[in-house]
Design a protein around this nucleic acid. Structure first.
Ligand code: ZN
Ligand code: ZN
Ligand code: ZN
Ligand code: ZN
Lengths: 158, 158
DNA sequence: TTATGTATGTAATATCATAACACGTCAAGA
DNA sequence: TCTTGACGTGTTATGATATTACATACATAA
């Protein structure tokens, strides 16, 4: 598993690794990782944090891409559909998926002090959710699991 | 447990019951369930579905309360803080809590076809989430668990 | 080549949410 | 009693987020 955001790690490496896998995945599935889309993903990876659509747009526009909201929203939507990024609704933001390709039901841990977002392995969480839903006859297709709390670093400070 | 939204039930009864408990809870805690706040809760209960802040506002304004966004947002924020309502981020909406007072980690089941929202008992889900977070040294304070899928009725239709 | 689907760009608008300030009420304390 | 401060409500104005609709460019395939 990719190192969680909370820990120090060789970011250039984990980022490049994810990007390579993203290329492979989209090629394999027939989806087109066009320049804007690829650049949007790179921007998320470089930031290594959740970014708002307008923030991504600003970066894209500065590099010569369109400067209207749909440009960013479409690229980000594509990435989310392909499982290359996730949408964090609590923050109205997006973040690159740190382990694309691996089947995973992501759960996000959002530090309320430093806004760092980590993606936790949540297969057991998802299983419990599916079970609770099944009790009511509900079939879960997608789930957003977002936890707000304190990351290790910010716990130490407090 | 209160009947889930997916099932037919005596809504007037479940709604009145919840409102009575809300009164008791706020009185006990010293919080003030003022007319606007109480009416906002009633509106959510009557609708028995998730409502946007502006939708609630419209109802409040029609009854003589203020007609500016903060009026609705403040009332709804109060209800959420008191555990009398929940915010559904996926829908940018709010819904009355169907079992206030009971300690509960809510999980919401949102039907993508009819937009009905049910509140599932999610203690096991929350437990799994806490465990996954603990692995990374993260302490969960609050969690939003929102599942998108198909409710029993809409499954039958499809 | 021409047709077709997909991707991108732009303008305009819709929707959601908050900041800042004014006013009224009520209760504690001088 | 008068003052003060906390709280709730209302309003104006603005900010932040997201989508619709339409035009243009580009790829691919008949
Ligand atoms: Zn992921
Ligand atoms: Zn932190
Ligand atoms: Zn609840
Ligand atoms: Zn349904």
């Amino acid at each position: 598993m990719t190192a969680p955001a909370f820990q120090l790690h060789d970011h250039a490496h984990c980022s490049g690794d994810v990007l390579a896998r993203a290329e492979a995945l989209t090629t394999a599935s027939g989806a087109r990782l066009t320049p804007v889309r690829r650049r949007a993903l790179e921007i998320l990876l470089e930031a290594h944090r959740a970014m708002g659509a307008y923030e991504v747009l600003q970066r894209l526009a500065a590099e010569g891409y369109g400067n209207q909201p749909p440009v960013a929203y479409r690229a980000l939507e594509f990435l989310v559909e392909q499982g290359l990024a996730h949408r964090i609704r609590r923050l109205n933001a997006f973040t690159a998926c740190m382990h694309p390709g691996e089947a995973h039901a992501p759960a996000f841990l959002i530090c309320r002090a430093c806004d760092t977002v980590a993606e936790a392995a949540a297969a057991p969480v998802r299983a419990a959710l599916d079970a609770a839903a099944a009790d009511l006859g509900f079939v879960v297709e997608r789930a957003n699991i977002e936890a707000l709390g304190l990351c290790p670093a910010c716990q130490a400070q407090a």
